[in-house]
């Protein structure tokens, strides 16, 4: 059999095979996805039945409140993954986002304690957050460094600057804005919970309801195709890092309101942020990150810790089980995506 014949034969059967394969793949992915969602639902059902007080409105609003900071950060991370592609090693990722929040919180709290008002302090926090985002964009887009490494380096820069600024101490803060965030409420929902609801709505509309969002997915999914279609890929990727920095700044204000201070150790949140953004992919039909999926997984993570506490399961288990679930979901997600990739 000559090579040309083989080639022709493959060419003929290729389309049929591909069609069959893609149908099978779609079915397999559907099973995996529904399985993961069923697992989430089963855990929730267990909590609803056995965890005392789990379904009370008060408790659920508490969980939304507790999820606000993680949620805002996870949106930033999700945007970066959408724009940079969801390949774990080479795709978009912002490891500096939690440290950036720590830095913004330190700037915000320090300026407030020095007597500058809310307006200037918020402005400075947002400026710092977006400047860190711009640094990420410069490293990734301008210098072409792998996002994993570039943002890791920026993480250290941000963490170092926070330490320099606060000397690793707690900086107490109070202001009218913080007062509203702490004790304000409307329609029985607290200000912090509102913050998450409003921010979620904005992000979902921006990414899933505009042509801008559509182009963002194109940039992340097929950068060459996007470039060929005349989309300014560098601009979009840079934008996601700036947006991530903006999210860090918003989250920092929520953090300072919740803790009445900026405290060291914000970097610890990074793992939960990554987990939320990655877990969220199971809620999408094509295993891509979506804002809605991220919101669901943020709430899931919050409900998990809450349910465990209500069941009086030792808090030591929470991290372990959370980690195991993340591993499971990430494993099946990359398995499903892997089979998609090897077409």
């Amino acid at each position: 059999m000559s090579a040309t014949v083989l080639h022709a034969e493959v060419g003929v059967s290729d389309e049929k095979q591909a069609a069959a394969k893609s149908a099978g793949r779609r079915f397999g992915a559907l099973v995996v996805r529904l399985g993961a969602i069923a697992a989430f639902a089963a855990i929730m059902a267990y909590f609803v039945i056995f965890a005392p007080g789990f379904t009370s409105t008060f408790n659920l609003i508490n969980v939304v409140e507790q999820s606000a900071i993680l949620g805002v950060l996870a949106y930033g991370m999700t945007a970066v993954i959408i724009g940079g592609g969801s390949d774990v090693t080479e795709g978009g990722i912002d490891l500096s986002i939690a440290a950036n929040m720590g830095l913004c919180a330190a700037v915000y709290a320090t300026l407030l304690s020095m007597g500058y008002g809310d307006f200037l302090s918020v402005l400075a926090a947002v400026a710092v957050g977006m400047a860190v985002g711009a640094l990420n964009a410069l490293a990734v887009v301008g210098l072409g460094i792998l996002p994993l490494l570039a943002t890791l380096a920026v993480l250290n820069v941000a963490a170092g600057m926070e330490l320099t600024l606060t000397q690793n101490t707690v900086v107490g803060a109070s202001s009218p804005l913080l007062g509203v965030l702490v004790s304000g409420s409307s329609l029985g929902i607290s200000a912090l919970a509102w913050a998450l609801i409003v921010f979620s709505a904005i992000m979902i509309v921006l990414v899933h309801g505009t042509s801008f969002g559509l182009r963002l997915y194109a940039v992340g999914g097929h950068p060459e195709a996007a470039r060929a279609a005349g989309i300014g890929v560098p601009f979009y990727v840079s934008f996601t890092y700036m947006l991530s920095g903006f999210c860090a700044a918003v989250a920092s204000i929520l953090t300072v309101s919740r803790l009445s201070a900026s405290t060291p150790g914000s970097g610890e949140l990074l793992l939960s942020v990554l987990a939320a953004a990655l877990l969220g992919t199971v809620f999408s039909r094509r295993f891509v990150p979506t804002m809605g999926g991220t919101l669901l997984s943020v709430l899931f993570i919050g409900l998990l810790a809450n349910g465990f506490q209500l069941l009086n399961v030792s808090s030591y288990w929470v991290n372990g089980v959370q980690g195991a679930l993340i591993l499971l979901v990430v494993a099946i997600t990359s398995f499903a995506r892997g089979s998609e990739g090897s077409r």
């Binding site: 919740r258 803790l259 949140l269």
Partner: peptide
């Protein structure tokens, strides 16, 4: 009901908030 926040302020606050509800 024993809660260890693992040195994370955020976690301790969340735990206290849920604890109040309990």
């Amino acid at each position: 009901i024993a809660l260890d926040a693992g040195r994370k302020d955020q976690q301790q606050i969340a735990q206290l908030q849920t604890l109040i509800a309990q």
